[in-house]
């Protein structure tokens, strides 16, 4: 069973539908016991960091997510919230990844949010993503990014910055783009996570 964490974030359903298409048993839930008992957990999200962190702290989900030992996949804001701090609302986040979340600052007239398909470059030392993902395009929608660091598995460049497209540390996996909206390659990545 894959638990999709249900909280006050937007467009959680698209993750649920992706798992439905792949054909894996899943449940959208905020129940602490169910999340702890799941084989795998997906932490999705579209939303603002500060209000979302406040919600996670109030509901106790923060502590639940931090203490999970099974594979956890953070998507988009889910990935950002797993980091130590976000410039969006200047808020401390879950701290699973020590990296910090920063705001895009256009250097040559780039549009923000970074919206659309951009390429994903795998780092040579990645160990859980299919090689075919290297150089492929995935769908992004975000105004904040995670600086590339020791946990970075793949990078993308925007506003003159190489930022983390995918991350991994211990049992925590993450993607800044939306694999559930990234056509066949996105489904490949979800399957890669489900296979870890």
């Amino acid at each position: 069973m894959v638990a999709i964490i249900n909280y006050n974030a937007g467009n959680i359903r698209s993750v649920l539908y992706a798992l439905e298409r792949i054909g894996v048993a899943h449940e959208l839930t905020a129940d602490h016991a169910k999340i702890r008992a799941a084989d795998k957990v997906i932490f999705p999200g579209v939303g603002a960091a500060a209000s979302t962190m406040a919600h996670l702290n109030q509901t106790g989900l923060s502590e639940v997510i931090r203490s999970l030992t099974q594979p956890v996949f953070g998507v988009c804001v889910g990935m950002q919230l797993l980091c130590s701090h976000s410039e969006e609302g200047d808020v401390p986040c879950l701290g699973v990844f020590p990296e910090r979340v920063r705001q895009f600052r256009p250097v040559t007239g780039e549009k923000v949010p970074h919206m659309g398909w951009n390429d994903v470059q795998l780092r040579p030392d990645h160990n859980w993503v299919s090689p075919e993902v290297d150089g492929s395009y995935c769908y992004y929608v975000h105004s904040y990014y995670v600086e590339a660091g020791p946990d970075t598995v793949a990078t993308t460049t925007y506003c003159g910055t190489d930022f983390a497209a995918m991350m991994q540390r211990d049992n925590f996996y993450a993607a800044q783009f939306h694999p559930e909206k990234s056509a066949q390659v996105g489904e490949r990545i979800i399957r890669d996570f489900l296979a870890v």
Partner: peptide, 8 residues
């Protein structure tokens, strides 16, 4: 659409 399509 959301159920069946994997693009935005």
């Amino acid at each position: 659409i959301a159920r069946h399509l994997n693009i935005p």
